[in-house]
Simulated assay, not measured.
Amino acid sequence: MQTVLILTAGYGEGHNSAARALEAAFNERPDTRAELVDIFALRAPRLNHISRLGYIRVINSAPRIWSSIYSWLDKSPRVPALFRGLASHRRLLGKIIAEKKPAAIVSTYPVYAWLLNELRREGLQFCPHHTVVTDALTINSLWYRSGSAGWFVTDDDSAAFLREKNVPAEKIHVTGFPVALAFADRPAHLAPPEPVSPTQPRRVLFMINCGRARAVAIARALLRNPAWHVTITAGRDESLQTELKAIAAKSFATYEILGWTNRIPDLLMTHHVIISKAGGATTQESINALCPMLVNQIVPGQEEGNYELIRRNEAGALAETPEMIVATLNAAFADNAALWRKWRGNLGLFAQPNAARNIAATVLAPIEASPIGSGAISPARHHTVSAL
């Protein structure tokens, strides 16, 4: 039984979402066991929790500050020194690698490449590591400034971006974003109803990840239309759920108000449109569900490329205010839902719901073809990666 370590971090749901999909895909492979590792949560759980909350607060309430931080990380020559300061994290990661003796390492968070390459410089020998880039188009240099055995990207334009940054073309794999296997294994009955059916409402999914006042204003606007069924996910904020249910009880639309839910794949596959911010996981899941997206918020930096992917492929729209959201939905469903049909058709041209399985197959192919077993570390399997 060979082990694959999947390294992730909780700074943005996209990293964890991709990691969980990869875990499921690797665990489908014969004689393979995937293990998720979040070294930041393991090394300092309390600090990790506080820093994650701080990250979420900054991107939602002070996007200009986050934009400056993101730009500094992209351009500063001091970044390597910053990551060398994570010595205790690096030692813990090295200990896990020495104990697990993985056949392969896959990371969905860019800092790991820096830690792994530093471990190699310190003399630890271990298997190749691969980087799954969870951003699209506008890719921070953290993802490629430290070397890797291979980079997996969402689309051809992202691959071209990496080539322009002198990443070797043979190490770049265009696989799509690793989404839950449910999207690839989609049963035929999971589809939205005909959008102009006289007996079926247009199904609109609103995933709340913006400020409370803004979320309530959007919900009020959506719930006024009797031709729509509005599903709202409010996360773990119980007081927000209570407020939304009170508003919905007096509305014209049919509705469902949810808290935290693990039904997101099913919801995306059975709704006509999703309204959400342009997070990496949400954007990619909507693409692979063939559910056009109205982007109501873009975090500067990492989310700009996600929206650009939607815009460039004409598969949704930017609508940041309640009035613009309602107007865009009305336009999408007008004229026999012509615009909606165009968006959905375009999504089908670049969706890659089997990305996680394709990544797993690519990572394991040279290992499965090697006459050397995948268990022990040997000089032949020692892997050195030089920084770009």
Rank of each mutant, 00 (worst) to 15 (best):
E194A: 11
C127W: 10
H272D: 02
T233D: 02
G280K: 07
R186I: 05
L116V: 06
S239M: 07
A62K: 08
P102A: 01
L53F: 14
P192V: 09
V216I: 13
T283L: 05
P80F: 07
T3C: 02
R263T: 03
H49I: 11
E35F: 01
P77K: 01
V106G: 01
P45I: 14
E164I: 10
S239H: 14
G235H: 09
A253C: 06
P353K: 10
R163Y: 08
M324E: 13
I218L: 07
A221N: 00
G279Q: 09
A317N: 03
I377R: 14
K171Y: 07
A317T: 05
I232N: 12
P366G: 13
L329F: 11
A18G: 08
S251W: 00
T328H: 05
I247Y: 05
S197F: 02
D38P: 07
T328Y: 06
A9L: 06
R121T: 04
W151A: 13
H272V: 03
L47R: 13
M324S: 13
R236Y: 05
T134A: 11
L364D: 01
P192I: 09
M324W: 00
Q297N: 11
K342A: 12
P198I: 04
V106N: 02
T231Y: 00
V79P: 01
T261R: 08
L222W: 03
A149F: 02
M207V: 08
P80G: 03
L347P: 04
Q2A: 02
N225S: 07
P193L: 03
A227L: 12
N313E: 12
N358T: 14
T270F: 00
G373R: 14
V179E: 09
V273Q: 04
N354M: 10
A360Q: 05
F152T: 04
R341K: 15
I325Q: 06
S251M: 04
A9H: 07
I97R: 03
A103P: 03
P201Q: 05
L294E: 11
L47W: 13
C291Y: 15
N288L: 06
T3Q: 14
P226E: 03
S378V: 15
A289E: 06
P353A: 12
R121G: 07
R78D: 13
G348F: 09
A234Y: 01
R33N: 06
A24V: 02
R311N: 12
K171C: 14
A41Q: 12
I264R: 08
L181C: 02
A98V: 10
A234W: 01
A234M: 05
I105R: 10
L124P: 00
H189Y: 04
G345S: 12
P195K: 01
S51E: 10
